[in-house]
Simulated scan of single mutants.
Amino acid sequence: MSDPHQQEFRRVALADPLVEPLLRELTHEYVTRYGPTAREEMTRYPVDAFAEPHGVLLLLLEDGEPVAGGAYKRYDGHTAEVKRMWTHSAHRRRGLARRVLAELERTAAAAGYRRIFLTTGPRQPEAKGLYLAAGYTPLFDVTADPLTIGPLPFEKPLPALLPTR
């Protein structure tokens, strides 16, 4: 069965008004799960960290409205770090985060990165499940209680592609 909705990926700047739902919902999610100090995560990086040529912020639009998104920034010369993974609360359980993650991987590989790194919080089991299902290698003991570990790091090699820059 095909999805009747028109979907497209769009590269946007952090200041783009389409990013507002992502920022609002992620902030709410972090504060709900980790407390008020989690709000700081949303302002931890400079705006240009998620801008080309070293980073990107992608939104998945459905019928022109943002339903999911994510970003990466430069971690080191060969590694992109995924940040800001988000699916609109009304659109979860549709595989949208998996699509965003795959597009971030493709975009990072095309930009010349050879590895993806990311961390997710210990109170986000759905994110941990996403990254394991998408072939990421956990850099922590998956049998340990996540709350005893702190941020959960993952990595994944990227295929070598010709840069598009």
Rank of each mutant, 00 (worst) to 15 (best):
M1W: 15
D3T: 03
P4C: 01
H5I: 06
Q6C: 06
Q7S: 09
Q7Y: 07
Q7P: 00
F9T: 12
F9I: 13
R10S: 08
R10Y: 09
V12N: 05
A13I: 03
L14C: 13
L14A: 15
D16Y: 07
P17L: 13
P17N: 10
P17V: 11
L18C: 10
L18S: 06
V19L: 14
V19R: 06
V19G: 08
E20N: 04
P21T: 09
L23P: 01
L23D: 11
L23M: 14
L23E: 08
L23I: 11
E25K: 09
T27F: 00
E29I: 04
T32A: 08
R33I: 04
Y34W: 06
Y34C: 02
G35Q: 01
G35I: 00
P36Y: 09
R39M: 09
R39A: 12
E40N: 04
E40W: 00
E41L: 14
E41P: 06
M42A: 06
T43S: 03
T43I: 02
T43L: 03
P46V: 06
P46I: 10
D48Q: 15
A49C: 13
A51H: 15
E52K: 10
P53T: 05
H54C: 13
G55H: 12
G55N: 12
L57M: 11
L59I: 03
L59Q: 03
L59S: 00
L60S: 08
P66T: 00
A68F: 07
G70D: 08
A71I: 04
A71K: 01
R74W: 07
D76T: 05
G77A: 02
G77W: 00
G77E: 04
T79V: 05
T79Q: 02
V82E: 14
V82Y: 07
V82A: 13
M85I: 11
M85H: 01
W86A: 02
W86K: 02
W86S: 01
T87C: 03
T87D: 00
S89L: 13
A90G: 09
A90V: 07
H91G: 01
H91R: 10
R92L: 06
R92S: 10
G95N: 13
G95C: 07
L96H: 05
V100K: 08
V100S: 03
V100D: 03
V100F: 13
V100W: 09
E103D: 14
E105M: 10
R106N: 10
R106L: 14
T107M: 05
A109E: 01
A110Q: 07
A111L: 03
R115V: 06
T119Q: 10
T119D: 14
T119G: 04
T120G: 12
R123F: 11
R123K: 10
A127Q: 09
L130Q: 05
Y131M: 13
L132T: 13
A134L: 10
A134K: 15
A134W: 12
Y136Q: 02
T137P: 02
P138C: 09
V142G: 08
T143A: 15
D145E: 13
P146H: 10
L147V: 13
I149Y: 11
I149V: 15
P151K: 14
L152V: 14
L152D: 07
P153H: 15
P153C: 13
P153S: 15
K156N: 05
L158E: 09
L158K: 08
L158S: 07
P159G: 04
A160H: 04
L162N: 11
P163G: 03
R165Y: 09
